[in-house]
Design a protein around this nucleic acid. Structure first.
Lengths: 221, 221
DNA sequence: TTTTGCATTTTTGAATGCAAAATTTGCGAT
DNA sequence: ATCGCAAATTTTGCATTCAAAAATGCAAAA
């Protein structure tokens, strides 16, 4: 197994909440499960620690990182900034074909909304945001976005929405698509920020910081 | 020696250009120099690879990452976005005392400009930008900023400036301080972007992408 | 019964060793 | 002399091993 794959597999285990935030990462078990020895595992853990997914305590092992409310706020703030930037750049660089793809994804997502299928709605939602970032044509930006969103994904896509909130989100997405089609960078940037700010408020209100009690795992499955 | 220290020391070696971009990283030599064995060294290299400072080629060792013009553009773009965000947040959160410190740093920097001391000017410049990011009160943002700026530092702080460019940069810094004192987030954000855009143009015009020929090392020393 | 001190066990962090892959070297053929 | 191919050397990646640090358990004393 390649180094990057090891990192990826452990990342998946952490993001799935299979090892819940704050829990110790059982080195030996993971070694057996991934069928590797401790050396490559530990290399991967160090990388994930640099990413912020793992917390290394010298001489006391590693734990799955736990997000406080403050962490969550900070991550959302950065995410807002990155998406806003991506929106602006995307408007400068996106092709008509890419816009059409996003428009199609948007239509599909709206249909999921009408069908009241939250899971599928979230899936489409995420695809649209990622497509916009991708259209920005900046791999550095895309990389940071991936890493930041990974850390808030569970909170972002697990928080239950009220009908009102959901309707608002869909309306915001109409505006997002519209700005994109008009290639209105400033406008898109502005909407994306507001959109994420609302999302953040939802998440924080729901008290989804990853403290001892909260278990997001159940809700995602 | 602690893991983080190992990472830090190798990072410094790379950023100083001691191992020039594109050059192979001599594992054995570094081990001897840092007086560690290959295991912790390789762990550090993997972390630095995730940061983008090192390029790992499976079964072919690691090299110091080389930045193309495109990489440089992408990094500057992201840096702009991060600083713009930091500027906005800083205006919301900065204390009067912090503003005073930045004002003092600004005055000192302007004096270095008058003294025609580019090295000291750059040093002060960097301190101001970092202080603004720090005032944003967002460690996630600060971390990304550190990592992104590290990768373009040499280009950013090595490019020789024309008198005209330098004068413009100082003027922009006046505006930056002013916006900060007025706590004008939108304004600060705007100025910071323009400021960095100009810097990027300088750097790219100077053709400072890290291709075979270019050696930035001499100029920094 | 609770707490403190010590010995044992477990786990971490790093060095070494080994097999596989790649690079380099050397030799022969054209 | 140059090109191609094969052997030798080097280097990489990982498993294993070893030493040190922390956690645990137990017994004795308060």
């Amino acid at each position: 197994m390649l180094h990057e794959d090891v990192v990826g597999r452990i990342r998946a285990i952490l993001l799935d909440g299979e090892i819940p935030p704050g829990a110790r990462i059982p080195e030996r078990e993971l070694c057996e499960r991934l069928e590797i020895s401790r050396t490559p595992l530990r290399e991967a853990l160090k990388v994930l620690a640099a990413e912020g997914l793992v917390q290394l305590l010298p001489h006391r092992g590693s734990r799955a990182a736990k997000l406080t409310d403050k962490d969550m706020r900070d991550l959302f703030e950065v995410c807002q900034g990155l998406e806003a930037l991506a929106g602006e750049l995307a408007c400068e660089r996106i092709t008509d074909a890419e816009i059409d793809l996003i428009a199609a994804a948007h239509a599909a997502m709206v249909q999921h909304y009408r069908d009241d299928d939250l899971i599928q709605y979230y899936r489409g939602n995420r695809a649209i945001h990622e497509a916009i970032v991708s259209a920005a044509g900046n791999p550095v930006l895309a990389g940071l976005y991936t890493s930041v969103t990974a850390r808030i994904r569970r909170a972002r896509y697990v928080t239950p929405m009220t009908a009102q909130r959901w309707a608002l989100a869909v309306k915001e997405h109409d505006a997002i698509l519209n700005a994109l089609q008009r290639r209105d960078g400033a406008g898109l940037s502005h909407i994306l920020r507001a959109h994420l700010r609302h999302k953040r408020e939802e998440v924080l209100q729901a008290g989804f910081a990853e403290t001892e009690g909260s278990d997001l795992t159940l809700k995602i499955a």
